[in-house]
């Protein structure tokens, strides 16, 4: 696992917690970023984003999702096999259910 972490040498401040790649400060920073993104999401309810409404929300959702998966669930620092297991399920689900919704004309109607 150490070798995997060393590949991310740019995270210099995290090296002292080599096994899982993050310090307490790092975690708090991530949580603050997540909080800010959530605030931005909620603001779409109060402020009119016009045509950007939908793309902004979807992008924010994906960013939050992958931040939690990569940093809190350590997939970014852990063995690639774990990522393979999870992302196989995730992308299979996205692909299959997108096709499924498409047959219901969900995206076109």
């Amino acid at each position: 696992m150490t070798t995997t972490t060393e590949a991310h040498a740019d995270h210099a401040e995290h090296q002292d917690h080599a096994e899982h790649g993050m310090s307490i400060r790092g975690y708090v920073t991530i949580a603050l970023i997540l909080a800010a993104l959530t605030a931005l999401e909620v603001s779409t309810y109060f402020v009119d984003f016009g045509p950007f409404f939908m793309p902004v929300l979807l992008i924010l959702m994906c960013v939050k999702f992958f931040i939690v998966v990569s940093y809190f669930m350590h997939l970014k620092f852990d063995n690639k096999l774990f990522s393979f297991m999870f992302y196989t399920g995730l992308f299979l689900a996205i692909g299959v259910y997108a096709a499924f919704l498409a047959t219901f004309k969900f995206f076109t109607a």
């Binding site: 096999l81 999870f86 196989t88 399920g89 299959v96």
Partner: peptide, 27 residues
């Protein structure tokens, strides 16, 4: 064989499977 813990591998497999469960409910 992989040097990874059985339990953690099992948990990730379970979470991968849960993606299909919630995908179905969301759809």
């Amino acid at each position: 064989s992989t040097g990874l813990s059985n339990n953690k591998l099992g948990m990730w497999l379970f979470l991968g499977s849960e993606c299909l469960l919630f995908g179905g409910l969301i759809s």
